[in-house]
Amino acid sequence: MNYYIDVEPGVSLYVEDTGVGQPILFIHGYPLDHRMYEYQVNQLPKYGYRCIQLDLRGFGKSDSPWESYSLDRLADDVRCIIDTLGYKELTLAAFSMGGAVAVRYMGRHAGHGVSKLLLFAAAAPYITKQPGFPQGMPPEGLDALIALANRDRPQMLQEFAKLFFHNEPSPAYREWFDLMQLDQSPRAIIACGYTLRDENVMADLRTIKVPTYIFHGVYDKICPFELAIIMKETIPNSILLRFDNSGHAVFYEELELFNVCLLEALKH
């Protein structure tokens, strides 16, 4: 089942809804869309889970306004989705930038409707190095990517995709992955680049009270594994799942192990 949900005047977000049972709301990462979860959504309904895949504004089939790509606005969009669907106890599962959105949602909306949180290679608490925070990418690295997006977006996306994988996937998968990136709104690519560079969710991490599972690849070049350790130390009673042969694309590089761990996390 596919449908659109209005989150503000003139902005509707696309949702794909698959299966029946315990609901899981998936938030994709940057610069991808709901299709990144293909190899999870093809499996989870067999085990009694309802997979709700959201395209964030500016991504996939959702509307792409010129403004409003802050973490606050993206988190408010998630609140609109949850309220419209009427869920009281869902699992919120989110990757990379989507992880930052999910964490901001937990802080800004006090975890409304969420009973469990799954963070996959989350861009939290920061994605860039800051004074007193030596982890993450150098800010000038993101500045260079944003500048390149303004003059050669396809090249910028190719450069960014090189950071995703510790183990290069098949040529066919890589072509599909690159085409998915190219489908995204040029405006969203640039605007969310600034959001990733400038915002952080450190304060939001401290507010999380639901069971939280942190999936993170040891060889992540976008959100270094040190970020997972910080999340584990900051979120009370959270569980860190370490993937020893994965980079940023933890959802795919050790696919079978990831899906086994995902099912275990959902059961507990």
Rank of each mutant, 00 (worst) to 15 (best):
Y3V: 05
A161M: 10
R197I: 11
L266K: 07
R35L: 06
G86R: 13
A147L: 08
A228R: 09
A110Y: 04
G113R: 15
Y69F: 14
L85V: 09
F133C: 04
I230N: 01
L205W: 11
T128W: 15
L241C: 08
A124H: 02
A94T: 06
Y126D: 00
C80G: 00
M156C: 07
Y252T: 04
C80M: 13
I5T: 07
Q181W: 07
Q181E: 03
Y37A: 01
Y219T: 05
E159W: 10
D143I: 07
L85I: 14
E16P: 01
P31Q: 07
Y219V: 06
G132L: 08
E159N: 13
R242N: 06
L262W: 14
P134S: 14
P45Q: 13
M106C: 09
F243N: 06
C51E: 05
L266F: 05
D143E: 13
Y69D: 03
E8V: 12
F225G: 02
D6T: 15
F251P: 00
S238H: 12
K221H: 14
S115C: 11
T91E: 01
H109N: 02
S64G: 11
K209R: 15
P134Q: 10
K221M: 13
S246P: 13
V15I: 15
L32M: 11
Y39V: 00
D76Y: 10
L118Q: 04
A147M: 11
I229A: 01
K232Y: 13
A161H: 07
C192Q: 14
P65G: 04
G107R: 06
G58K: 04
K46L: 15
I81L: 15
Y194G: 03
G107N: 06
L142Q: 10
D17F: 05
N167P: 01
T91F: 05
L54D: 10
L179E: 14
F120V: 15
S185L: 05
H28M: 11
Y14T: 02
N259P: 15
E89I: 03
L179S: 11
A94Y: 04
E264T: 11
